[in-house]
Amino acid sequence: MARVLLVDDAAFMRMRCAKLLTENGYSVDEAENGQEAIEKYQKIKPDLVLMDITMPVMDGLTAVAEIKKIDPDAKIVMCSALGQQNTVMSAIKAGAKDFIVKPYQPEKILSTIKRFVG
């Protein structure tokens, strides 16, 4: 079972996403910000990270760079809102694999994840 680390500061978004993923057979861990994401990444080595961009403490962009330092093979998908194109571009250049745009469409999330972890 593939493990997905869900990083978002909004509990509502995490809850929604986690539900979708667990229902589709993924094991889900959650983190509230970039800092926590790094800590959890090291501990559980997830197969994929879904990373929000705008978060307190440490934003998603910084977290991508940090995680990539720890594990160059990390698979990270950015969760972006409209209007964050430049940040997403930077994240992709920093090593994120892809991005999905909020509001999430279940099919899109699932197909994106499937592409990377099967």
């Binding site: 705008t54 809102a81 909020k102 509001p103």
Partner: peptide
């Protein structure tokens, strides 16, 4: 404001 946007759109 940003989080509100994301959640409400969702």
């Amino acid at each position: 404001s940003h989080t509100l946007k994301g959640s409400s759109a969702t």
